[in-house]
Amino acid sequence: MQHRSLDFRDADAVIAEIRHLQHGGYTKLGKWNLAQMCDHLRQTLRMGLDGSDRRLPWVVRTLVTGPIFRRVIKTRRMKSGIPVPKELVPTSPDGPDDPAAIDACIATLQEARDASGPLPKHPVADLTVDQWKQLNWIHCAHHLGFLIPHAQPVAEAPSGIETASGPP
């Protein structure tokens, strides 16, 4: 099986996909299950919502991570295999999905959806609220693409999601 190419345009599309995977089941292509992905995504969303005292130096944010993130937003794709900082590694156990981890992620996605800014200082890049949101929806699509749903959705895909993959 191949990684799905997803493109979420808003938090509601991400939430719908998480619920679809949670209730319909999935095949895992990578190392993490749905709850572990949700744990990681929640942690990265919290960094943007809460800010951080530890920030990369201005020159790195301006000349390295800023351009990388702007390219991700422009292409709507993230590279695989980038090491995850220790503080963003999921704490949810392997095995059956933990519904509490999934619900916490969804609550944080809703908070991010409703954020109007200004946001606290992000630790790795200087982004507008819209750039931050789009980067996070792309990040969610990147990870959730490693889960192949067992069941197809009954209704059409929500308006905020675009898929570029064929049938699993």
Results as ranks from 00 to 15, higher is better:
1 M>V: 14
2 Q>E: 14
3 H>F: 13
4 R>I: 11
6 L>H: 06
9 R>F: 10
9 R>K: 12
10 D>Q: 04
12 D>R: 11
12 D>F: 07
13 A>R: 03
17 E>Y: 14
22 Q>P: 03
23 H>M: 09
23 H>I: 02
26 Y>V: 04
30 G>K: 01
30 G>E: 01
32 W>K: 02
34 L>G: 06
34 L>I: 05
35 A>M: 03
37 M>T: 06
37 M>N: 11
37 M>W: 09
41 L>Q: 03
43 Q>L: 13
43 Q>F: 01
44 T>F: 04
46 R>V: 12
48 G>I: 08
51 G>R: 05
52 S>W: 04
52 S>H: 07
53 D>K: 14
54 R>H: 11
60 V>I: 13
60 V>H: 08
67 P>T: 07
67 P>R: 08
70 R>L: 11
70 R>T: 12
71 R>F: 08
77 R>Y: 02
81 G>W: 02
81 G>E: 03
83 P>L: 09
84 V>R: 09
85 P>G: 04
86 K>I: 09
87 E>W: 09
87 E>N: 10
92 S>P: 00
92 S>Y: 00
93 P>D: 11
95 G>W: 06
96 P>W: 00
96 P>I: 04
97 D>V: 06
98 D>N: 15
99 P>G: 08
99 P>W: 01
101 A>K: 02
101 A>D: 10
102 I>R: 07
105 C>V: 02
107 A>V: 01
107 A>M: 07
108 T>E: 15
111 E>K: 14
112 A>L: 15
116 S>Q: 14
118 P>I: 13
118 P>V: 14
119 L>T: 05
122 H>Y: 11
124 V>G: 12
126 D>C: 02
128 T>G: 02
129 V>D: 01
129 V>A: 02
131 Q>V: 00
131 Q>G: 01
131 Q>C: 01
136 N>M: 13
137 W>N: 06
137 W>A: 09
137 W>F: 15
138 I>C: 07
139 H>R: 07
142 H>G: 05
142 H>T: 06
142 H>M: 06
142 H>W: 05
143 H>R: 03
143 H>V: 10
147 L>A: 01
147 L>H: 03
149 P>D: 04
150 H>K: 14
151 A>N: 10
152 Q>K: 15
153 P>T: 11
154 V>G: 07
154 V>H: 14
155 A>K: 06
156 E>P: 05
157 A>P: 08
160 G>K: 07
163 T>R: 15
164 A>R: 15
